[in-house]
Design a binder for these strands. Structure first.
Ligand SMILES: [Mn+2]
Ligand SMILES: [Mn+2]
Ligand SMILES: [Zn+2]
Ligand SMILES: [Zn+2]
Lengths: 139, 139
DNA sequence: TATCAAATTGCAACAAAATTGCATTTATTA
DNA sequence: TAATAAATGCAATTTTGTTGCAATTTGATA
């Protein structure tokens, strides 16, 4: 659990003004320690306005607080960026994992090795693994 | 360009009845040789009913004719499965490429090397590369 | 701390995307 | 060809996401 002062610093360092909703949402992401969907936010912040939550996700993504994780479900999920991300430079060369049992999507601390494809200029790679997560495997 | 008889066989071998819409859509996928979105179908088949197109994509995906390709745009795209895919066994260990210039998404004939993550049971991997595609790089 | 411009929020309306129910048509099998 | 099952087309509905705008909050400055 992060202090308010630290949450505030994260927002400021990403050039975002500090508002109640933003602090709450960011704190939620840090506390949950997993990728979250819009629906997750809606469930958690029942009295917040939908539009504000959408806009929060968007400004967080624009400013390098969150990154979108590709998914074939049709629902984007968002994961916390590394400290170094900004609106200028998003950098996400880590793998993601989606559990087929509990549905959780997480950022893995594993680097995606560079891939070369003849004739193509590859500038970005997204690797999404699926299977049974740590928790579900142990249970 | 595939013959009607061949298209028909693909449908039959995937336990799908042969209808006008299904033949047209499958032929379109084969002809285009790239991943297609719902919008692509809607544009191509202007007089077809949207609902039928949605249902076609779903039954194709259920029965192993198409596979969904994860994307962070919010719009699913679909690629042709290998002959061996069925409703029982979808198998897609190949990479995908999305071009940032022309927007085309394609299935690459490149196998994703197996990834091991300690404590996790990995059963599937999706690798989506981005950059400049073959065509756009040449132009 | 008081003031003020700029940004964010909440609400309503709107637009887009996807789903459902059902009557009609089409395909498959016998 | 007839009977059965499945797919289609249409209308209505739901879900998801966006836009405009007035009210509120924030951050900077005096
Ligand atoms: Mn991540
Ligand atoms: Mn593919
Ligand atoms: Zn799990
Ligand atoms: Zn291209």
């Amino acid at each position: 659990m992060l202090r308010y002062s630290e949450i505030k610093n994260i927002l400021k360092s990403h050039k975002l003004s500090v508002t109640v909703v933003r602090v709450d949402v960011l704190e939620f992401f840090i506390r949950e320690n997993r990728a979250l969907s819009f629906k997750d936010l809606e469930d958690e912040f029942k009295d917040s306005d939908r539009v504000t939550l959408y806009r929060t996700l968007n400004s967080f993504t624009d400013n390098g607080v969150l990154h979108k994780i590709p998914d074939d479900s049709g629902f984007a999920t968002y994961g916390l960026c590394h400290d170094t991300c900004s609106s200028e430079d998003h950098n996400h060369d880590h793998m993601h994992f989606k559990c087929n049992k509990c549905g959780t999507i997480e950022c893995l601390n594993l680097h995606i090795p560079p891939v070369k494809v003849p004739g193509y200029q590859v500038t970005e790679a997204n690797l999404i693994l699926k299977g049974i997560c740590n928790n579900c495997a142990a249970a």
